[in-house]
């Protein structure tokens, strides 16, 4: 098999980002971002605060139209489409069916006044599920998959611990069987043992369900465990990219070297 044949045999990319830039007035949010994400692949985006990670995530997840450049997505029905050329209802439907968004603070991603079951069932009802028993059954099954006891199904998320809330948020997003999930600092604010458990769970789910994921974090340990590939951002630009182990073990750019060497060793 020649290299050309091998490239042709690859599935088409799920997400394709072309020359994406975003400006806040004349301030650069992110500049000339290019990458491709393939089905089932986990991409980590790391960088310090203010490096444009969250701006980039907002553009990619359809919440903020970029100043220039395109975000192409492999739509189930329409094939490769420009995300911001879709109509708003189409984009919103995509966001609550084929995509997931796990926020850093579970209180932003959950409906705190609805029970755990209602939170998980919301996406099912949004696409027309109208059988209470089936919805509840699925909610219960998903709570099981994220290791929440089924007797907590009718409890409010306010009665859950931080780690449980984060797991509930993951279940709420995965119930619609998305192909792409965005995670913004999924382990922020959790203590290390809970972090480790959550990462383990996430890694299992992403592998089992073959979900592509984009994980934005400043925590290098998180990407080491989760991500296949890595983008290192600084001042709105991608300064280095490559396989995770390659970037972390043999950093080329001075900033990446600084970042890797800044991690505290215990």
């Amino acid at each position: 098999m020649t290299e050309k044949d091998w490239l042709a045999s690859l599935p088409p990319p799920l997400l394709q980002v072309e020359d994406l830039s975003f400006y806040y007035g004349d301030q650069v949010g992110c500049l000339d971002i290019n990458f491709q994400l393939y089905p089932g692949e986990v991409l980590g985006i790391v960088g310090e605060s203010g490096s444009g990670k969250s701006t980039l995530l907002n553009c990619l997840s359809g919440h903020q139209p970029p100043s220039s450049g395109r975000v192409m997505f492999d739509h189930r029905q329409q094939g490769l489409v420009d995300l911001f050329a879709l109509s708003e209802p189409e984009r919103r439907l995509l966001m609550r069916t084929d995509w997931g968004l796990v926020r850093q603070n579970p209180r932003d991603g959950l409906r705190m006044n609805l029970s755990a079951g209602g939170n998980v069932g919301e996406r099912l009802m949004a696409v027309g599920a109208r059988h209470y028993g089936h919805i509840r059954g699925q909610a219960e099954q998903w709570l099981g998959r994220v290791e929440i006891a089924s007797d907590r199904l009718d409890h409010l998320p306010t009665t859950f611990s931080g780690g449980m809330q984060q797991r509930l948020q993951i279940a709420r997003n995965l119930v619609s069987q998305p192909r792409l999930i965005f995670m913004d600092e999924p382990t922020g604010g959790l203590d290390v043992s809970v972090q480790a458990k959550l990462l383990d769970l996430l890694r299992g789910l992403v592998r089992d369900l073959n979900i592509a994921a984009i994980v934005v974090t400043h925590d290098l340990a998180v990407v080491r465990l989760l991500a296949d590939r890595l983008l290192v951002m600084r001042q709105g630009r991608v300064v280095e990219s490559g396989l995770t182990d390659q970037v972390l073990d043999d950093p080329q750019h001075p900033y990446t070297q600084l970042l890797v060497s800044s991690v505290l060793q215990v």
């Binding site: 919103r92 029970s115 079951g117 209602g118 996406r123 209470y132």
Partner: peptide, 14 residues
């Protein structure tokens, strides 16, 4: 997009 209204009824039954 009226799925959310259904969620309120779900909460009632739960």
């Amino acid at each position: 997009e009226y799925g959310l209204m259904q969620v309120r009824l779900y909460e009632d039954i739960a």
